[in-house]
């Protein structure tokens, strides 16, 4: 089964806009459209810091344009997506305000239509349009301060969120199945004969597929570690220890939490065992293992673990 994954930077990206875009957005918030004059004399709208034809810096002359403008081209969206600004049919339009030499892409709202409607006949290049601004108090100084060109209001905030359905891949899926049964599985490489945990279905060193399944112990040895003093939602407290644990029977150390003793007593070579969550809380996830805790065995000498770091 795929698992939902949302890629969303919390709170949204904080974008500094610089002087040129900043001037445009400030004027926009005040309900004015301005373009900027390029060295060639053309008025670039919306303003860019450069002439898009050649990269040269634009002049510092701002020119008020519009508010009336002309539709140069458009795309009719009969079935809007969740991320679109309107939840009913609308058009994306290239609108060139009077006095500008380039066009802005924006929403063109031509009225209420049923989902799936064909493009309305009156929608064609040359259509004259005007911006419909948000109420002054609601303007934020961004491009959506114009709700749409032409009236009729239904507003949706565009989310800064992308959702995915992710599958782990066949090898990792099998590993997680093992973990869901309290077993830790790896693969032995047919070339180097080393056991990789978790398995990837291939040996990254030899570049060959791996299929020979090996169950390894839930005990192992700490090879090296960090004491973390920055909080993390996955860790029990601060400080906490993230360690490379070489499980007995494995040839690659895996990254895991180590707890059950003060952080300053964790040692290279220390023997540990997985602390599993109660069985009823298990799922297909590595977090079935809460962390690793020390066991009462002598430390492994450094020279026997040195090659695993």
């Amino acid at each position: 089964m795929p698992t939902n994954h949302a890629l969303e930077f919390p709170g949204g990206y904080t974008r500094s806009v610089g002087p040129v875009i900043g001037r445009f957005l400030s004027e926009l918030r005040d309900g004015r459209l301005v373009g900027v004059r390029a060295g060639s004399g053309r008025v670039i709208f919306p303003p860019l810091e450069y002439d898009p034809d050649n990269g040269h810096a634009v002049t510092d002359e701002y020119v008020e344009v519009g508010p009336s403008g002309t539709v140069e081209s458009f795309a009719w969206v009969g079935e809007p997506l969740p991320s679109h600004p309107l939840d009913r049919p609308f058009a994306w339009a290239l609108v060139r305000p009077d006095g500008a030499d380039t066009a802005i892409l924006h929403v063109l709202d031509v009225g209420e239509y049923e989902r799936g409607a064909a493009p309305p006949k009156r929608l064609k290049p040359g259509l004259r349009v005007r911006p419909r601004y948000r109420a002054a108090a609601e303007r934020r100084g961004d491009i959506s301060d114009i709700e749409a060109f032409q009236p009729e209001v239904t507003m949706i905030t565009a989310p800064s969120r992308l959702e995915y359905d992710l599958k782990p891949g066949r090898a990792l899926d099998r590993f997680l199945e093992g973990v869901s049964e309290g077993r830790i599985l790896g693969h032995r490489c047919p070339v180097c004969r080393k056991v990789m945990v978790p398995m990837k279905g291939l040996c990254p060193k030899d570049g060959v597929p791996t299929t020979e399944e090996v169950e390894v112990a839930d005990t192992g040895t700490v090879t090296t570690f960090a004491v973390n003093n920055l909080p993390d939602p996955r860790a029990p407290q601060v400080p906490f220890v993230s360690a490379y644990v070489l499980l007995d029977g494995a040839d690659v150390a895996m990254v895991a939490l180590v707890s059950g003793l003060p952080a300053d007593q964790v040692r290279m070579g220390m023997r540990v065992r997985a602390l599993w969550k109660p069985r009823e809380e298990w799922g297909r996830t590595i977090t079935n293992i809460r962390w690793f805790e020390p066991i009462d065995e002598p430390d492994v000498p450094f020279d026997r673990i040195a090659e695993y770091m």
Partner: peptide, 13 residues
Amino acid sequence: PYYLAPLGVDSVS
């Protein structure tokens, strides 16, 4: 990221 992406305009549009 200033003039196009915030509109939510998609690649098919």
